[in-house]
Design a protein around this nucleic acid. Structure first.
Lengths: 214, 214
DNA sequence: GGTATATCGATATTAGAATATCGATATACC
DNA sequence: GGTATATCGATATTCTAATATCGATATACC
């Protein structure tokens, strides 16, 4: 375990985890690569290869120990040590993310939301405070926040990104449909709704059902 | 143009488009692959290859005609002929998507939202009606809707998916963090927040700034 | 008009990911 | 205890995508 891992594998790991978590409640203690593959739509060889990067192995004839596997993936993905984050842009999407409880399962904790519109400031979103943007830098520095989430409209995103970088942020999760410029040492991950939609509508248009479960 | 296209290229096309649209307002009428690449963080060869799939070419020394390129990408992605869709799950995320105006630019039109909770039914979300789930099948069949968007909690997603399939839907855009089972001829596109987050937090943890702009 | 240069497009190479093949091994059953 | 079988893991192969190389060409400038 802890070998080099491909981005593709890394992206599949949460899917295994999600399925395994749902499984562990009702089913027995072992799970095979074939079973996982069938459930998630992957080939069993791929499943084995993916899991070999994080787990120290299953047993022939039995498969993997569900509980250990869950733990291994969680540890690998760092879900055990929580990542604090700030969110900028308390519009509808921002509020949705602020109040989404599921992030806990992914080791993410949004400590507060920020907005430049004074009207929404001071309000609460499922227990998460929304503060004025001017207070962000101070909070980020004091709490040593490393991750910033951008949910502002496209035209404001670059300026928010600049502010985040100035606040000492090291990674940005960008939901605004624009490309952001940032220093090379800052990681930018774009959440690309338009790209997904493109794949989907192209498939729909072609009536080619080649790629199910994209 | 209209050659075979890779999924990777397909996913980059909306990014080019987005940048070009922003550009066309203020800048001149031509754009080079180098310029596009620099702006979006891709290599210029890749840009040229991507664009060759949709455009019938740029001119040496000049580059591509911005306006034509925009048009070519729009046509290729089918943004000119609008796709109708229904959305199920009028929680925070569902409402955010319902009221997001930007989908127009991607050729997507959500005709209505549905929910099984009678309390939210009858209300309006930025001009989109929210109706009871029981009325969905009828509407889908009458309007020949082909695309369904799922924004319900994980535990309800499979049953909603089944209902959508029964309503004649041919493609599903799934925002719930679960794997969905559906007939092979139905396209499922998972919007995978957890996967993105995995990549991001792994990068952050490793302090390897290898892959900026993922 | 001739030459220099920026840019394109096509082909070739390299890198990366998915899939197939094969031998090994732990359990189950006789 | 011995044999059959499900499953694993490692290596090899194929497929896909990214990148590099090279020649071609349209404009700009002298």
């Amino acid at each position: 375990m802890e070998k080099a891992i491909s981005i593709q594998t890394l992206q599949r790991l949460p899917l295994y985890l999600q399925y395994l978590r749902a499984l562990s409640a009702d089913k027995g203690k072992n799970v095979s690569a074939k079973m996982l593959g069938n459930a998630l739509g992957f080939g069993e060889i791929q499943v084995r290869k993916d899991l070999s990067s994080v787990s120290d192995g299953g047993k022939p004839k039995l498969g993997y120990c569900t509980k250990e596997l869950i733990r291994d993936i969680e540890v690998f993905l760092g879900y055990d040590n929580v990542n604090d984050a700030v969110l900028v842009g308390a519009g509808k999407l921002g509020k949705a993310l602020l109040s989404y409880q599921g992030f806990r399962d992914y080791g993410l904790n949004i400590v507060a939301g920020f907005d430049s519109n004074s009207e929404v400031c001071g309000t609460d979103e499922s227990g998460k405070q929304i503060l004025h943007l001017s207070r962000m830098e101070d909070l980020c520095r004091r709490m040593k926040i490393e991750l910033g989430i951008i949910t502002v409209p496209a035209n404001e995103a670059q300026s928010v990104c600049d502010t985040l970088v100035k606040s000492g942020i090291r990674a940005v999760w960008n939901f605004a449909p624009v490309h952001l410029d940032a220093p090379k040492d800052v990681i930018i991950k774009n959440e690309n709704i338009a790209a997904s939609l493109a794949v989907l509508s192209k498939n729909l248009a072609q009536k080619e059902n080649l790629a199910q479960q994209i």
